[in-house]
Design a protein around this nucleic acid. Structure first.
Lengths: 219, 219
DNA sequence: GTCTATAGTCGGATAGAC
DNA sequence: GTCTATCCGACTATAGAC
């Protein structure tokens, strides 16, 4: 199927996309320069307006790309949650186990992997300073995750209020956000170099313990 | 008294500082322009290098100012915590009550007041993308708060590990961060216009309930 | 102290050769 | 499709009149 000419086209585009994800993730949209991105990708600056219709178009392409990456990570769990019906005490424990699994995915994605760190920086930036690209992230990632988690919380707490469950879901996920947003503060407070596997294990352990204890107290 | 004067009666320096807090909080450091700030303040652009040695100096002045504001909010609690010694079951309950009080302060400051919202946007931005001004925030605000909260957690859980307590503190405070960082997502998910007093009450109630239930489960 | 005018810099986009 | 050269706009900062 693949033609050689197509391969070389996608090569330049893909290299720009990879470099853009790095630079946008590191510097933020305004501070990032197309000159830097082009240099990092090893291509000419003029390739950006040529392939992506400018800086903004490149940014949107990055957003679309990372939403797809994130979706891949969680699609199976979202799918499972929207299909299954949980009832009774056994259903509650199942729902809690699923929730813990989802939290684990999010932790490893946002805090653990170096790829996920840059990606989640971009996502969090859009949360704080939404641009026209925010809609893509909301519909493609945030809304599905928040809906899934709040559905599980409704099952676990037997409180049918979607509103209350959504707020609880935000608070619970916030435990994870803290370690991404305030990474520098955590690292300094504990006099670390970064999150190495030992710290990651303890962070994961603590957040999951908190989540389980909290939800059991609401059962 | 008569301190409630309007903006036009403030000096040029103060008007610049107020305007800068607004614009930096809304747009972030790079996106904010000195032109905008000067126009918002109703003063000439040249006043910025004249009084603050340029854009960066103005930003540092804003950071210093907001750290002082934040310190005022929490200094009494930080003071009380560093002085008192809590022991026994009664001590644990006292520590928990103090922790809840501090959480309430932080919620009202970060999520509730419109002033605090702009300020906390700047603080969170420095968390995610630290500049040379980060040190001021860390030493003046983040470190004292994190230390206070983790000290209380050590008393409550009777686990002497400062490291574990600090990580727990981050996770617990993260519940608050979520409503500031992902405000737009919360608002959209619940189809709101913003956080009105009803939502604020429920957010506060839920976070405090989570915090109390969680820490009781760790006693 | 405050203004106008302008210098100096930088980043994004484009034209046109190859 | 990719390159070089260049343009244009926007921004910060400064010089100097008042």
């Amino acid at each position: 199927m693949g033609q050689d000419e197509v391969k070389s086209e996608l090569g330049t585009q893909e290299r720009l996309l990879e470099a853009a994800m790095d630079i946008f993730g590191r510097d933020g949209y305004e501070s990032a320069t197309t000159r830097n991105i082009a240099r990092e990708a090893g291509v000419n600056i003029a390739a950006i307006p040529y392939y992506f219709k400018g800086k903004e178009g490149l940014y949107r392409a990055v957003i679309t790309h990372i939403v797809q990456m994130a979706e891949t990570q969680i699609s199976d769990l979202v799918q499972a949650i929207s299909n299954l019906t949980y009832t009774g005490d056994r259903g509650k424990e199942q729902a809690l186990a699923t929730l813990v699994k989802m939290m684990e995915k999010i932790i490893d994605f946002m805090v653990g992997s170096s790829q996920g760190q840059r990606v989640s920086r971009i996502i969090l930036r859009e949360q704080m300073y939404p641009t026209t690209a925010y809609e893509l992230i909301f519909k493609g990632f945030m809304e599905p995750v928040l809906n899934s988690v709040s559905t599980l919380i409704i099952v676990i707490t037997e409180d049918p209020s979607r509103r209350t469950a959504t707020l609880r879901a935000m608070a619970i996920i916030g435990q994870i956000l803290a370690f991404r947003v305030a990474r520098e503060t955590v690292v300094r407070s504990l006099d670390l170099k970064g999150y190495d596997p030992d710290e990651m294990d303890e962070i994961r352990r603590i957040i999951l313990e908190h989540t389980k204890n909290l939800l059991r107290s609401l059962m």
